[in-house]
């Protein structure tokens, strides 16, 4: 069977989902029998080398770069999978969307983060290096921005969950995750 080509990325996430992928431990060798990795932080490839079968997205979109990368993934992957809570629902970053009854929610968020006396920032400087991507007005989930084919819930999804999902996807099946794997309370 031809190996499936996989790309992964972390947008507004914490890399926890990628860590969780590594939690499949020695099964990573079995995985490499089935797939080969294209663009991914795991191999530090920054660009797509060719079209991929599967794209795994960790994290939602909080800045313009996230949107740009996500659209590239959509363009270059046949199947796009939102992995983890941030990609699906926004996760922790989306808490800033709770500032909704403000005329200028983004400024309020930055003030809260950088200008309250709780942090040592005597000049109340808000980071604004030209190399920093512009923030979006609020945090968007992946499905707000592009079409997503599958979602794997969890914060993070366990290594086992990701392993089962990938196994199904390489066989061109929809990942059917058992209740125990996605039950978190």
């Amino acid at each position: 069977m031809k190996k499936k080509r996989i790309a992964t990325t972390s947008l507004a996430g914490c890399f926890g989902c990628h860590m969780s992928l590594l939690d499949i431990d020695e099964r990573i060798f079995d995985l490499l029998e089935l797939v080969e990795f294209d663009r991914s932080p795991l191999n530090d490839l920054k660009k797509f080398t060719r079209r991929c079968d599967i794209g795994l997205i960790e994290g939602g979109c909080c800045n313009e770069e996230n949107v740009h990368v996500l659209r590239e993934f959509r363009q270059n992957c046949d199947i796009l999978v939102a992995v983890g809570q941030c990609a699906m629902m926004g996760g922790l970053p989306v808490m800033r969307n709770a500032i909704m009854h403000s005329d200028d929610p983004l400024r309020e968020c930055l003030d809260e983060a950088f200008c309250t006396p709780k942090v040592l920032n005597p000049e109340n400087q808000i980071p604004n290096d030209p190399a920093l991507p512009l923030l979006l007005d609020k945090v968007y989930t992946c499905v707000d921005v592009v079409k997503i084919d599958y979602q794997i819930p969890g914060c993070p999804p366990s290594g086992e969950t990701i392993w089962r999902a990938l196994n199904a996807l390489v066989k061109n099946e929809a990942p059917a995750l058992e209740y125990d794997l996605i039950k978190y309370d």
Partner: peptide, 27 residues
């Protein structure tokens, strides 16, 4: 192209452009 028509990147960046006083290299 798989993009969601409901999402408008220009609109999403408007506020940030004003606060950061610069424009988007990407968009």
């Amino acid at each position: 192209d798989g993009r969601q028509a409901g999402f408008n990147i220009q609109h999403a960046l408007d506020e940030s452009r004003i606060i950061a006083k610069r424009r988007s290299i990407v968009f």
